[in-house]
Simulated scan of single mutants.
Amino acid sequence: MRVLFTVLAWLPLPVLQGLGRFIGWLLWISNSSRKRVGLINIAHCLPELSAAEQARIVRASLAQEFMTYVETARVWLGPARAVREGVREWRNIEVLDRAFAQGKGVILLTLHQGAFEAVAIPMSASYPFYGLYKPQKGALNDLSLRGRCRFGGRMVKAEAGVRRAALPLLAEGLGVYYMPDHDPPEGRGVFVPFLGVPAHTPTLIARLVAESGAPVVFMWGERLPGARGYIGHYLEAPAGIYDPDVLISTAAMNAGLERCVRACPEQYWWGYKRFRRRPPGEPDFYRH
């Protein structure tokens, strides 16, 4: 694993992105499960688009997802200057500055879209962010810690739970970084709309906001065409995310994530089974 990552880390970005694009193409022509799941998801989430446009977006999404995987070695271990200068623009980053100015810490939310780590890791050179993680086995854990901390970011074990790890950091005025676009375990989520579909969504952020009073900022990393680098996008959270009602707050969080997706649907990872868990009485979303 270390040898593979070291080799990939020093390959030119066009080569890495070409490899990711090729893997995505193979998954498309082989009618892989990720392709099938992606087409089901987008048909429900963006029904206003034609079938041809939906297929185009899903095909592009597969390439974008695997570009992210193969770029990871470069972002973690590659030439520091190239990684920093790869972010061509920090769009609306004043949103993040205003959030930190409140002195209550910042909850930065991102999602599986575009090149999130290619933006987040260089950002940590200028802002005091902590990533929350559960240790993995083997060399990948050490590689990820080394890469994610290379510019000053910090990682904190969340073995006792993300909430317990995050609250003390927010109380110190620091930032915590989290990806909430997943289906949490039973009992840790509620069903609220995401792109028009009820989605089992973690209530963690609603509880963190209520207990800490910290502002929330959304971020996603746009991958520019032609291996020209990335743009970091920063968005203010919908006002409803600060509502004490967990359902209202969690629905507002999904609305913020949806805004990111709609800005560039080709770079969202449509192949994930986001709607696997269903409200009582609803059929299996992916059965057909």
Rank of each mutant, 00 (worst) to 15 (best):
P225V: 09
G256F: 01
Q113T: 04
L49Y: 00
V3C: 06
I107D: 01
P279N: 05
R274H: 08
W269T: 13
I40A: 13
I42A: 01
V3L: 15
H182D: 05
H44K: 09
F285M: 12
T201P: 06
E186G: 10
L132K: 03
A51F: 00
L13S: 14
F129A: 12
A73P: 15
K137E: 15
A214R: 02
A52C: 01
V58K: 06
C260N: 12
E94V: 10
Q54H: 01
D245I: 03
E89F: 02
L111I: 08
I205A: 12
P135G: 05
R164S: 15
E222T: 10
P265S: 07
G161R: 08
F194R: 14
D183R: 08
R91Q: 10
A55T: 10
A99N: 06
E186Q: 15
S124N: 14
A51M: 04
A82N: 13
Q113G: 03
R287I: 12
G20Y: 00
G226V: 08
M155E: 12
A63L: 01
I57F: 03
I57H: 02
A120H: 07
E65G: 11
M123R: 07
P135C: 03
A9H: 05
P198L: 09
R81V: 14
C264I: 06
G213F: 07
V162W: 00
L109I: 14
Q267L: 04
L140S: 15
G105Y: 02
E282T: 06
T201E: 10
A118M: 09
A206K: 11
L195I: 12
M123D: 02
M219K: 02
I23H: 00
K35W: 08
K157D: 13
R81E: 15
V37T: 15
E117W: 04
D284T: 12
L11Q: 11
R154C: 11
K273N: 02
R164D: 13
F116L: 14
F218P: 11
P14T: 14
R21I: 07
M253F: 00
W25K: 09
S61L: 10
G105H: 02
Y127R: 15
R36S: 07
G221R: 02
G281T: 07
V176L: 08
A125V: 07
I42D: 02
L174A: 12
F191S: 03
E48V: 06
V7M: 04
T250G: 09
R98L: 11
I23F: 01
G213M: 14
V58R: 08
R84L: 15
G114E: 09
Q136M: 07
F218M: 14
V156E: 11
L235G: 05
K104F: 00
A52N: 05
